[in-house]
């Protein structure tokens, strides 16, 4: 016993500093524990509040109410239909925006001429909130799928182009010059050095902008749609079905989180060299 005591004390004194280590990893178990607590504690509080707080369920439904509502919406197929509708809009709009913004951003970052031509315009449009375009889009494109997809495109394209441009600006000049001394021409340098170097940055930018796209689709559905998760929430709100609002919000959050994890995974498998640094 007398041997274990000092050891115990040393781990304890270390323990207090482990939590606040600057820019360093924390032990695996502590990390897992904190991550679980991050979700579990609010859930527990919610449960305690609704069980012992005698709160009107139309104001704050209990976790059990929400699970029941989830079952109900799932069994009728409405939830799946709404989710698919929202996912499809985001998928198309985001994919097109990313597809266009990658070459535009890389060109803006690589060539000062193209940057001078586009940056003022993009910088201006970027500060116009995408939802502010909704009335115009309805005027021009009606209330079908087109305005929603266009909205997502507008909301992602300008931001993503500028973010991709910034990653290109950070390619070390030495690497580009090294390529020239190895016999590379400008096209080879662009495709075989600049592009692979910025790929992780592009994935990161796209990941951040996917979150924006996901928010925009919900906003667009709140305003005009016949199905979609945003529509589900606004209808539920009109009929005071608070439990269904919660179902909608949670599904939206979980899908967003899955997107994020997917992009992180993509980054890890496609850019092993960059994933190590992060």
């Amino acid at each position: 016993m007398s041997h274990t005591e000092p050891v115990d004390r040393s781990t304890k004194s270390l323990g207090s500093t482990v939590f606040w280590r600057l820019a360093e990893d924390i032990p695996r178990p502590l990390q897992t524990g904190l991550m679980i607590a991050s979700i579990a504690v609010p859930l527990l509080l919610w449960w305690l509040l609704t069980t012992f707080g005698s709160i009107d369920p139309t104001f704050l439904p209990s976790p059990a109410n929400v699970i029941t509502a989830f079952g109900r919406l799932w069994s009728t197929g409405e939830l799946l239909q709404d989710t698919v509708a929202s996912l499809w809009r985001v998928g198309v709009g985001f994919f097109m925006a990313v597809l266009c913004s990658i070459p535009v951003g890389v060109l803006m970052g690589s060539f000062a001429s193209i940057r001078a031509l586009l940056e003022p315009l993009f910088g201006l449009v970027r500060y116009m909130p995408a939802p502010a375009f909704i009335p115009l889009l309805i005027l021009y494109l009606g209330i079908g799928e087109e305005p929603k997809i266009t909205l997502i495109f507008i909301g992602v394209f300008f931001f993503n182009s500028l973010m991709v441009m910034d990653t290109v600006k950070f390619v070390p000049k030495d690497l580009i010059e090294a390529t020239y001394t190895l016999g590379g021409n400008r096209l080879q340098t662009l495709l075989q050095v600049i592009f692979p170097h910025v790929l992780p940055g592009i994935l990161d930018a796209s990941r951040i902008n996917l979150a924006a796209a996901w928010q925009l689709v919900i906003v667009s559905e709140l305003i005009a749609a016949t199905e979609g998760l945003g529509r589900r929430i606004s209808v539920a709100g009109r009929f005071l079905r608070t439990d269904e609002i919660f179902v909608g919000l949670i599904v939206i959050g979980v899908i967003g989180l899955i997107f994020d994890l997917f992009f992180q995974y993509l980054l890890r498998v496609s850019c092993r060299w960059a994933a190590q640094k992060r």
Binding site: D174, E177, H197, R272
Partner: peptide, 16 residues
């Protein structure tokens, strides 16, 4: 051009 092989002052290997 590649007829003059250059080694830079800073590390310039392609990290990927």
């Amino acid at each position: 051009g590649p007829d003059r092989g250059m080694v830079f002052q800073h590390y310039t290997l392609f990290p990927w």
